[in-house]
Design a protein around this nucleic acid. Structure first.
Lengths: 242, 242
DNA sequence: CCGAGTCCTTGATCTTCGTCAAAGCGACTG
DNA sequence: CAGTCGCTTTGACGAAGATCAAGGACTCGG
């Protein structure tokens, strides 16, 4: 693995090219000496869709940055009902500090590449570097905001509003430069219908029906079940209930 | 206001008696000098149920510790549908660091007493004291866990499971010593039926019907609409879908 | 090219929960 | 004490979404 110790736009050195890509990377908080130490213990992986990254009640012994792809965080009830409680895009952080066990499953929703560090390395560094902990706090606060936004969607929106909200959310996360003025966007859906259902608290059939309706109403087009073109972001937004 | 600079069980000095009460207080992170500085700018308030503490899109200029009572955090859709996205019990922290505006409403659900600090004071101290930021990170991670637990409830549980889960959650938060072995608990509901509905993504009527069913099934008793006695915590848990 | 497997769509029916309406129950007021 | 107000309960009905069932579209391996 090549370690690039160049400089983030903020002036903070970064560990690897991918980590500087967007706003939530964690590596950027470390100073050069720490980076060299961390680089020795870090490793890059690529995993296929469907691979479980962190198992429920498994011991967590590593943390990761998502470099590309989408990771779904799920929780399940004892009878198998499942809920996706978060989606991690690059360069989000994966792992729950200060807890030995995870109550959450993490699974690759698409092909995913990761940059992993042993838990001990990160935790030692967190003690030494307040800046790292600061970044982690910021990311955690962002995730909390997102979780609470989604609680409104889960608790108070109709099925069609849920699906519209979901498409809007994906469009913005896949391509941060989605322009409401341009009024159109195009992207690959990172989730299957079953995943979307688990994310929205619906069934596959309801998701499918709502997507069909958006299609026949001319708001979106879908090719190969995955490739989505939004022809009217504003109409999609109207339907999202915001 | 009297400043008690005595020592937390962890050996960390605390600002005021109430803040050391449970596990999530923030004051405990400060050293004595900082405490004296903070004490000068802090103030204690008591507010009546229904009082709005932080308005949506209002500027946040202070942070608070909840000393007693329950604060509900809500988000609303433009047409008035509302969702409670969190409940803060003592000694939780109130306020969103690193953001000028709140997208959230905070309202006293019961009589509440607070210990407030100006935003500037806390933010300055956060820069100086990594321990404070560390505490904040821990609380934020806990809140994130809670939010994600609740997403499962909102997305995947039935109305009766939701109500059972809610009662269980309240029982444990009001009285951390709730003993599953003892199998019974008693507490005052901090929320009205309307609030419970907004918390669970249901209607008042559905909440009422489910409570009635729990009552006629002998799982709980309710006096004066507020005072709840759980006669069988294990039966309540069975119905919570966990 | 065929057959199996996976994922998605569509239709018919059923259930749960929301909506609408009315009435009960305290608490407070004049 | 009657009257009002806020909160809750209960019932009748309807609608949104779940469930059940069937079939279509695409991929992969022979």
């Amino acid at each position: 693995m090549t370690v690039r110790q160049d400089v983030h736009s903020s002036g903070i050195p970064v560990l690897c090219q991918s980590c500087e890509a967007r706003h939530r990377g964690v590596c950027g908080a470390l100073d050069p000496d720490q980076l060299v130490g961390l680089a020795k213990t870090s490793s890059r992986h690529s995993v296929e869709p469907g691979v479980e990254l962190i198992g429920d009640a498994e011991t967590i012994d590593s943390y990761s940055n998502v470099l590309s792809g989408v990771v779904k965080l799920t929780k399940s009830l004892s009878d198998g009902r499942q809920q996706i409680v978060g989606l991690q895009f690059a360069p989000d952080f994966l792992g729950r500090p200060f807890k030995a066990e995870s109550e959450i499953n993490a699974e690759a929703a698409t092909a995913v590449s990761l940059c992993s560090f042993p838990k001990t390395a990160i935790e030692r560094m967190m003690k030494e570097s307040p800046e790292l902990e600061h970044r982690l706090l910021r990311q955690t606060l962002n995730e909390l905001d997102e979780a609470r936004d989604w609680m409104v969607t889960l608790g108070r929106k109709t099925a069609s509003e849920k699906v519209a909200s979901f498409l809007l959310m994906i469009a913005m996360n896949i391509d941060p430069a989605v322009d409401l003025a341009a009024n159109s966007a195009t992207f690959e859906l990172p989730l299957t219908r079953a995943d979307i259902a688990d994310f929205l608290g619906l069934t596959i059939e309801t998701v499918s029906r709502q997507l069909t309706r958006l299609r026949t109403d001319g708001v979106i087009r879908i090719e190969n079940n995955r490739h989505v073109t939004v022809d009217s972001l504003s109409r999609l937004e109207q339907r999202s209930g915001a």
